[in-house]
Computed example of a mutant assay.
Amino acid sequence: MTPQQLTDRVREICLRFPEGAERITHGSPGFFVRKQFVMLWPHGHHGRDEPHLWAAAAAGVQDEVVGADPERFFVPPYVGGRGWVGMRLDGEVDWDEVAEICEDAYRHIAPPRLLRDLDR
């Protein structure tokens, strides 16, 4: 998958959430709902050559997913200390799982009013 195709897929997922927005940050697409909930690195970043994303996550999720599958998930730099999860997007990508990770990130960041809109 090309970097543009990858960006288009993640964009399609993240912009379907109420008040989801995209802004370029640090040279790559970031997805926001007032605050950032997903960061996409379609060309790799910080020593990781493969495309990947970083997603906000609730307490304990990072340990759970990285512990269960350290080949696909990792602790990202900068935001890993706040519990964010890194996910590789090379090889066979499970897009349902990517959508789930992005939705969980949105739910972690979005205010309650927007979560009610999402659940309608």
Rank of each mutant, 00 (worst) to 15 (best):
M1G: 15
T2M: 10
P3M: 12
P3R: 12
P3D: 12
Q4F: 03
Q4W: 00
Q4K: 14
L6Q: 06
T7W: 01
D8W: 01
D8C: 03
V10Q: 08
V10E: 09
V10K: 09
R11Q: 05
I13R: 05
I13G: 05
I13V: 14
I13P: 00
F17R: 10
F17I: 10
P18C: 08
P18H: 07
P18G: 11
E19Y: 03
E19M: 10
E19L: 09
G20W: 00
A21T: 07
R23Q: 13
R23Y: 04
I24T: 11
T25G: 06
H26G: 07
H26N: 11
P29R: 10
V33W: 06
R34L: 07
R34Q: 11
R34Y: 09
R34P: 00
K35Q: 14
Q36V: 12
F37G: 09
F37I: 07
M39S: 14
W41V: 08
W41A: 14
H43N: 15
G47P: 07
R48M: 14
D49S: 13
E50I: 10
P51H: 12
H52S: 15
L53C: 12
L53R: 10
L53Q: 12
A57N: 04
A57C: 10
A57H: 05
A59R: 15
G60A: 12
V61R: 08
E64S: 12
V65Y: 01
V66L: 09
V66N: 01
G67K: 01
G67H: 05
D69W: 01
D69G: 03
P70W: 03
E71W: 01
R72K: 02
R72S: 02
F73N: 03
F73T: 01
F73Y: 13
V75N: 02
V75D: 01
P76T: 03
P77E: 06
P77K: 04
G81S: 11
G81Q: 13
R82A: 14
R82Q: 14
R82M: 14
G83Q: 08
W84Q: 03
V85I: 15
G86F: 08
M87F: 04
M87V: 15
M87I: 12
G91S: 12
G91L: 13
E92N: 13
E92T: 12
D94R: 08
W95E: 11
E97H: 13
V98K: 03
E103P: 03
E103Y: 00
D104G: 14
A105C: 11
A105W: 04
Y106W: 14
Y106P: 04
R107N: 09
R107A: 11
R107W: 02
H108K: 13
A110V: 04
A110K: 05
A110F: 06
P111A: 15
P112K: 15
R113K: 15
R116I: 10
D117G: 00
D119W: 00
R120F: 00
R120W: 01
R120G: 13
